[in-house]
Simulated scan of single mutants.
Amino acid sequence: MKKIFGIILFSALTYTGAMAQGNITPAAKGVVYGANIGEKKVVAGNDFEQKLKGETPVKMQVKGKVTSVCEKRGCWANVDLGNGKTVFVKMKDYAFFVPMDLIGKSVLLSGEAYQESTSVEELRHYAEDAKKSKEEIEAITQPKVNNRFTAAGITVLD
């Protein structure tokens, strides 16, 4: 009985350790998180929102610079598209996470883009995740239409 309990405890600790942020491969040129999807027809940042008119979600690839990452698990990121617009990125089916050191890196996103209205409650939750001040969180009073992206793969470009 003790042996079975020991095996279960070891397995649980191993799984928990594998899920920790520290075990994610550090960001470096060529590192791929999620599916390794080669670069194909990349949508320019200036054309991103135009591609979303009508049909959504839209399968695409887009390049940008990571401006923030979820500090808890690396389960989301914000990416500057280089045109004054950003896109909020979540990982498809939470199949992978990204490290904090991805901030400031240029990346290739592969997946599906869409626009979505985000509630005040969810915006405040994300602000808490990003360690915003209480005043900044309370200043969020209106929902916001955001560019969103469900990433099947993220490739570090620099």
Results as ranks from 00 to 15, higher is better:
Met1Glu: 03
Lys2Ile: 09
Phe5Arg: 09
Gly6Ala: 04
Gly6Arg: 07
Gly6Asp: 05
Phe10Pro: 01
Leu13Val: 12
Leu13Ser: 07
Tyr15Leu: 14
Gly17Tyr: 14
Gly17Val: 09
Gly17Ser: 09
Gly17Leu: 08
Ala18Trp: 15
Ala18His: 15
Met19Asn: 13
Ala20Ile: 07
Asn23Pro: 01
Ile24His: 05
Ile24Gln: 10
Thr25Asn: 14
Ala27Glu: 11
Ala27Gln: 04
Lys29Asp: 11
Val31Ile: 14
Val32Leu: 06
Val32Asp: 04
Tyr33Val: 02
Gly34Val: 01
Gly34Thr: 03
Asn36Asp: 15
Asn36Tyr: 01
Ile37Pro: 12
Gly38Gln: 15
Glu39Asn: 04
Lys41Cys: 06
Lys41His: 15
Val42Thr: 06
Val42Ser: 02
Val43Ala: 06
Val43Met: 11
Val43Leu: 05
Ala44Ile: 03
Ala44Pro: 11
Ala44Arg: 08
Gly45Ser: 10
Asn46Ile: 10
Asn46Thr: 12
Asp47His: 03
Asp47Met: 13
Glu49Thr: 15
Glu49Pro: 05
Glu49Asn: 15
Lys51Asn: 10
Lys51Phe: 08
Lys53Ala: 14
Gly54Tyr: 13
Gly54Val: 10
Pro57Met: 11
Pro57Leu: 07
Val58Thr: 14
Val58Arg: 07
Lys59Ile: 02
Lys65Arg: 08
Ser68Lys: 03
Ser68Thr: 00
Val69Pro: 04
Val69Ile: 09
Val69Tyr: 05
Val69Glu: 02
Cys70Arg: 01
Lys72Trp: 00
Lys72Asn: 10
Lys72Met: 13
Lys72Gly: 07
Lys72Thr: 06
Arg73Trp: 02
Cys75Gln: 02
Asn83Cys: 05
Gly84Arg: 06
Gly84His: 03
Lys85Trp: 00
Thr86Tyr: 00
Thr86His: 00
Thr86Cys: 00
Val87Gln: 02
Val87Ile: 15
Val87Ser: 07
Phe88Trp: 07
Phe88Asp: 08
Phe88Gly: 03
Val89Pro: 02
Lys92Cys: 00
Lys92Tyr: 05
Asp93Ser: 12
Tyr94Ala: 11
Tyr94Thr: 08
Phe97Gln: 07
Met100Pro: 02
Asp101Lys: 13
Asp101Cys: 10
Leu102Asp: 12
Gly104Ala: 09
Gly104Gln: 13
Lys105Ser: 09
Val107Ala: 06
Leu109Ile: 02
Leu109Cys: 04
Ser110Ala: 12
Gly111Arg: 08
Gly111Val: 14
Tyr114Arg: 08
Tyr114Ile: 05
Gln115Leu: 10
Glu116Tyr: 13
Ser117Pro: 02
Thr118Lys: 00
Thr118Met: 10
Val120Glu: 00
Val120Gly: 01
Arg124Leu: 04
Arg124Lys: 14
His125Tyr: 09
His125Arg: 12
Tyr126Thr: 01
Glu128Asn: 06
Asp129Gly: 01
Asp129Cys: 14
Ala130Asp: 15
Ala130Cys: 04
Ala130Lys: 09
Ala130Val: 06
Lys131Thr: 07
Glu136Lys: 12
Ile137Ser: 13
Thr141Pro: 11
Gln142Phe: 15
Asn146Val: 15
Asn146Ala: 12
Asn147Lys: 08
Asn147His: 12
Asn147Cys: 12
Arg148Met: 15
Arg148Pro: 00
Arg148Trp: 10
Arg148Glu: 11
Phe149Tyr: 13
Thr150Pro: 03
Ala152Tyr: 03
Ala152Ser: 10
Ala152Pro: 05
Gly153Pro: 10
Ile154Cys: 12
Thr155Arg: 13
Thr155Glu: 07
Val156Arg: 04
Leu157Ser: 00
